[in-house]
């Protein structure tokens, strides 16, 4: 299933998983089967997230596809040059992976191999452009691909709640011009800010599918940590207060689920889907969906 076929027909729900630092991943598939039910339209596979070396996103995407899931294959520009990126994308096409999320990627310095060479041969915009070219039957150097061109749905990322919205919108426009077909956002915590962002997007770019990023907050500390360290995230004081109010309820995840469900309810009329980043709490996803009445 290619995502662009279902946008605007239904409210799209995707979830994100991070492969482990291991090669034995079969047991995870069982877990996914249990919690990522048919309500989930597709599963996002992160590409060595936060520059920490892990099981690769291509392999995991293939494995998911073989097990009946619909993967969204994430690709970053940190580790591969344009040759490797394009050839990986061709691999993905063969295995039936049709949805891509193209990112620049974190710098190696934030990860666990600090001395690694940052490649960044291409960046997210030029990678989108490259995939677009592949879809038209040409590689980046302009050579023709033999046979049918591959078909993909190109996703890109945007941070709606950042303090520098202008430059985000600017880059978003470049991404759209380059060929991005849907956007997945950074975590949303302020529905009114998000709606403001959506309004700008509608005004400038019309009907482009936006999928809001959602997570389940686990604790006050986690919220504070994210506020301080993770770019583009801005958890309002009111949410932190809610978390502080009932420690037990927060610990069990009940509070986090309620908050997330409320956000989903608030923004649902404005976007085309949500993207759940469970950050380990994959087992809470069914609960979240029923709370949010999805």
């Amino acid at each position: 299933m290619i995502l662009k076929d279902i946008f605007f027909k239904k409210f799209v729900i995707t979830a994100e998983i991070g492969p482990p630092k291991s090669w034995q991943v079969e047991s995870l598939i069982q877990q996914y089967k249990k919690y990522l039910t048919e309500k989930i339209d597709a599963i996002n596979v992160t590409d060595n997230q936060a520059s920490v070396m892990k099981f690769g996103s291509l392999g995991m995407s293939i494995l998911l596809k073989q097990n009946g899931f619909e993967p969204i294959y994430q690709i970053t520009c940190r580790d591969r040059n344009r040759i490797a990126l394009q050839s990986d994308i061709l691999n993905a096409a063969f295995f039936g992976i049709q949805n891509l999320l193209l990112l620049t990627g974190d710098h190696p310095i934030v990860g666990d191999h600090k001395n690694a060479k940052p490649v960044f041969d291409l960046d997210s915009v030029s990678l989108i452009y490259t995939v677009k070219n592949l879809m038209q039957g040409y590689d980046l150097a302009g050579n023709k691909l033999s046979g049918e061109p591959p078909k993909f749905c190109i996703g890109a990322a945007v941070a709606p709640e950042t303090e520098y919205l202008d430059s985000q919108i600017f880059k978003m426009e470049k991404k759209i011009n380059a060929g991005a077909e849907f956007f997945q956002t950074q975590l949303v915590f302020n529905p009114e800010k998000f709606i403001k962002f959506i309004n700008i997007v509608r005004k400038n770019f019309g009907k482009i599918p936006i999928m809001a990023g959602i997570t389940i907050l686990k604790s006050v500390n986690m919220a504070k940590f994210m506020n301080e360290n993770i770019p583009g995230i801005n958890i309002p004081e009111s949410i932190i207060k809610q978390l502080e109010l009932d420690k037990e309820k927060t610990k069990s995840g009940q509070k986090g689920l309620e908050i997330a469900a409320n956000i989903i309810k608030d923004i649902k009329p404005y976007c085309e889907g949500i993207h759940i980043m469970p950050l380990g709490w994959i087992n809470k996803i069914p609960q979240l969906l029923s709370l949010a009445e999805l």
Binding site: H107, P108, I109, K114, N115, A116, K117, P118
Partner: peptide, 9 residues
């Protein structure tokens, strides 16, 4: 011998 990139912060 392995290069150490990002050596100089």
């Amino acid at each position: 011998l392995i290069r150490k990139y990002n050596n100089l912060l």
